[in-house]
């Protein structure tokens, strides 16, 4: 199967990445080639093979429910691109009608 510019634009939207038309065109071609080459995994993945999500077989790693110090407020907000009243300021969320 091949990937179209429309597909890539939709994926870029999902990933919140603005692409120029030139970028979109170039990426579409490159991704198509890459996808073509990685598709070999499908043939090898039989139903009898268990997928591996973690490199090692660890389980039950927990932390005790004990409070540890939080960051100082100044450190929390120090890198904020915009802030107000001790909170992070963000542009309006809904698109304007």
């Amino acid at each position: 199967m091949s990937l179209t510019a429309t597909d890539v634009a939709r994926l870029a939207g999902l990933a919140r990445i603005e692409l120029t038309d030139a970028e979109l065109e170039k990426l579409t071609g490159q991704l198509d080639v890459i996808l073509d080459s990685v598709a070999v995994v499908q043939a090898a993945a039989g139903d009898d093979v268990v997928p591996t999500s973690h490199a090692l077989d660890l389980a039950n790693v927990f932390r005790a429910d004990e409070v540890t110090p939080s960051l100082a407020s100044a450190a929390v907000l120090a890198a904020a691109p915009a802030q107000e009243d001790g909170r992070f300021r963000v542009p309006h969320i809904l698109e304007e009608d």
Partner: peptide, 8 residues
């Protein structure tokens, strides 16, 4: 999913 199986 297939890639994870290859990982196995």
């Amino acid at each position: 999913g297939s890639a994870q199986k290859v990982r196995t």
